[in-house]
Design a binder for these strands. Structure first.
Lengths: 112, 112
DNA sequence: ATATTATATGAGTATAATTGCATATACTCA
DNA sequence: TGAGTATATGCAATTATACTCATATAATAT
């Protein structure tokens, strides 16, 4: 059951927060690490779990690895769009994360 | 995050199979146990996890406890209906389970 | 070349989830 | 009342997950 792996990947607060951040843009590991306030290695492992489940994909650009939502999986499983496009908007932490991400990106402190 | 508890409850093959069986009817523990081929105590615990997450409710009728989907939770989280009403139809085990359940119910071997 | 930055991963630990067995509780029926 | 059935739960074993620290790898910049 593919869907069980997808659900397992979704069933974690940090990973929901990550998918919320990736909703409309691609981000590198250090962006996500900074917003969530978790360790780099932990961030990398969460991203890997989402990637193995097929929910996100990664592209390496010079020293950074950019992660983004995997469109084809979102098309194959419409419930994903409902969770990431609608449910997360109800969650306070996720709203705060988006504000924090804007600040971070504006400040140019991360990546560059 | 309520949604994480719901997703954790969904992220298990046996529990997806259970929700598939409950889609259009209420069932008692022994019905589910028989179709899934798992132990009674295990069945009871899976049902409890779904119940604690608010996905199903239970009603006691004489010696049986009947479980059914919790309509209000399905209304609150529309993605649940997509998973249980549409995604499970693609899963072979789930299709087989429905056939098995019909046979079981026709044979009157389970419960009374 | 060397130092720096970004990312991934091995190893160890802590915590949580799943399962089975045995047993407790509750209800039914003779 | 006593036997049988349905369900829940305490306990123990096993397995899976999440997390941290330290280190490896790869790219960049000086």
């Amino acid at each position: 059951m593919d869907i069980v792996y997808i659900l397992k990947a979704l069933a974690d607060e940090n990973r929901i927060r990550i998918l919320n951040l990736l909703k409309n843009r691609e981000l590198c590991v250090c962006d996500i690490e900074a917003v969530l306030g978790i360790k780099q290695s932990n961030t990398s492992r969460h991203l890997n779990k989402l990637k193995v489940a097929g929910i996100i994909v990664s592209v390496k650009k010079s020293q950074w690895v950019y992660y983004q939502l995997n469109d084809s999986t979102f098309q194959k499983f419409p419930f994903l769009s409902i969770i990431i496009g609608y449910e997360v908007e109800k969650i306070n932490v996720c709203k705060d994360d988006l504000v924090l991400l804007e600040k971070l990106k504006a400040s140019d402190r991360c990546c560059e």
